[in-house]
Design a binder for these strands. Structure first.
Ligand SMILES: [Mn+2]
Ligand SMILES: [Mn+2]
Ligand SMILES: [Zn+2]
Ligand SMILES: [Zn+2]
Lengths: 123, 123
DNA sequence: AATTTTATGCAACTCAGTTGCATTTCCAAG
DNA sequence: CTTGGAAATGCAACTGAGTTGCATAAAATT
């Protein structure tokens, strides 16, 4: 399994280590980082959010050129959810500004955890 | 000068090291991190973007409860610009999702660098 | 086959942030 | 005051993601 393959299979951004595990083969981490950098430079992959000081990557497929789909991190189950169905919002930048890349990061409770919390309260 | 004072004076998010320099006094970095964590927990300060693997902090003053003002990082001059004048966009989350914090990060060219690049091309 | 170019690996390094523990400062009794 | 305990500060050692230098292996070119 290739790095890109591993990332395409996953439905969420992955760290270098997660990618390595999904690939099965145990390539050297330096090689993995080098390949990641190449893929990013080529625009096939991009850096998504950072979690606990580790960079997560994902294929650029589900993002438009300048606007990346939003990510929601649940503080309950710690899942990262790619909101690929949501149209990324646009904002009016000051005159002359040229936007090349936008990322929206959200944090809160996913639906499952919101329900769980309500139940706990009503007990 | 207090940590909070240093952050309020700056018009951009600061790293632990930048805060220390602006304070003048040379407090131990562990103490600084501990104070930062307290301020974050108290909601007076929050974590903004991460740059080159270092976390930047800023006072929560210029953000509403769940929606933080956007940040624009210029790839030309490497400045980080707080877009406090821009109303943070809102998106429709899937049913049941509860948003607690949102951050919008943008990257591109600021107006100055856009102009500079145009001039260079026309020479 | 010989030579050059490119990919992979290992080990050592860097550096932001953390942890454990000792020391100091503060503050409230007695 | 003096003392004893809590909270704040500091130091040194650690952690772990990511990087760098250099050696080796695999491809590609001649
Ligand atoms: Mn995603
Ligand atoms: Mn800001
Ligand atoms: Zn959840
Ligand atoms: Zn600029």
């Amino acid at each position: 399994m290739s790095m890109l393959g591993a990332m395409l299979e996953a439905k969420e951004p992955l760290s270098r280590e997660q990618i390595a595990r999904r690939m099965g083969e145990n390539a050297n981490k330096v090689t993995l980082y080098r390949t990641l950098h190449s893929l990013v430079e080529a625009g096939i992959v991009h850096t998504a959010l950072i979690r606990n000081r580790v960079q997560l990557y994902e294929p650029s497929a589900h993002c438009s050129e300048h606007l990346c789909h939003p990510h929601f991190v649940c503080r309950g189950c710690h899942k990262t959810i790619c909101l690929t169905e949501i149209t990324p919002p646009t904002v009016d930048l000051p005159d002359g500004f040229r936007l090349e890349r936008q990322q929206l990061q959200m944090e809160g409770l996913c639906s499952t955890c919101t329900m769980a919390e309500h139940e706990t309260q009503s007990i």
